[in-house]
């Protein structure tokens, strides 16, 4: 296989993640968000597996498997359970309108490319592209966390952000500890998602709308 093709596929998959990040931005139903996130994780798994292949780095396959099994299967299933049980599969509110959010997203993507490409002249092409796209995914994830009020969609935003980081880390050739870091991230998410917050928030407020929490700000009253 030629190098050009290897590069094109890596480029395609990383660009696919940015695209799915945009899809996440405009989903206005819980199910839509979870479907889009599943797709995000699938594309990540493919991108990581492709990196493992072209870098001949077998340990990265492990990261790909984690992305596939944990993020594309376990987490969406569990979140679906939660969403069902809480009865919040209706429309979700937004802070800013779709149009504005998408424009902001475009701006952030442009920013990511403008920031990363000029300074990484020395790195190899695959790493550069991956890094630029991964910063774009990170920024889009942040945007999603800011524009959403719902605890579940904030978590999804955080997970998409984290997918971007894994993409960047695997793109950096030979970076050590990538597998450990992806495990650490998964543990973090699992802890937060299942162990603590959702069930406690449910228990206390019968809602997962973070705005309900804002009423309890200690120093304002």
């Amino acid at each position: 296989m030629t190098d050009a093709l290897a590069f094109d596929i890596a480029h395609l998959l990383a660009g696919g993640m940015v695209l799915v990040s945009f899809m996440l931005l405009y989903q206005d139903r819980m199910n839509g968000i979870l479907n889009a996130f599943t797709l995000h994780a699938l594309v990540l798994a493919a991108a990581v597996a492709w990196q493992a292949h072209i870098q001949s780095a077998p340990h990265l396959y492990l990261t790909a498997v984690i992305a596939l099994g944990f993020k594309a299967i376990v987490i969406p299933l569990a979140l679906r359970q939660i969403v069902q049980r809480l009865g919040i599969h209706r429309e979700i509110e937004k802070v800013v309108g779709v149009g504005l959010t998408m424009l902001a997203g475009l701006g952030l993507t442009a920013l990511a490319i403008l920031v990363v490409l000029p300074v990484t002249g020395g790195a190899d092409a695959v790493a550069r592209e991956d890094l630029a796209f991964s910063l774009a995914v990170v920024l889009l994830g942040l945007l999603m966390m800011i524009t959403r009020r719902n605890a579940v969609s904030q978590i999804v935003g955080f997970m998409s952000l984290e997918n971007g980081l894994i993409l960047g880390a695997t793109g950096a050739r030979g970076m050590p500890l990538v597998v450990e870091v992806s495990v650490a991230f998964s543990v973090l998410i699992a802890f937060i998602v299942f162990g603590v917050f959702l069930f406690r928030i449910r228990e206390r407020f019968d809602t997962v709308d973070v705005q309900a929490l804002d009423r309890f700000r200690g120093d304002r009253g």
């Binding site: 942040l142 966390m145 605890a151 904030q154 955080f158 952000l161 973090l188 937060i192 603590v196 917050f197 406690r200 928030i201 206390r204 407020f205 973070v210 929490l213 804002d214 309890f216 700000r217 200690g218």
Partner: peptide, 16 residues
């Protein structure tokens, strides 16, 4: 409620 809100905010900002 206050402790949960504090922990949630800490989690979100800390993770970012």
């Amino acid at each position: 409620a206050e402790a949960l809100e504090a922990a949630w905010k800490y989690f979100i900002l800390g993770s970012v």
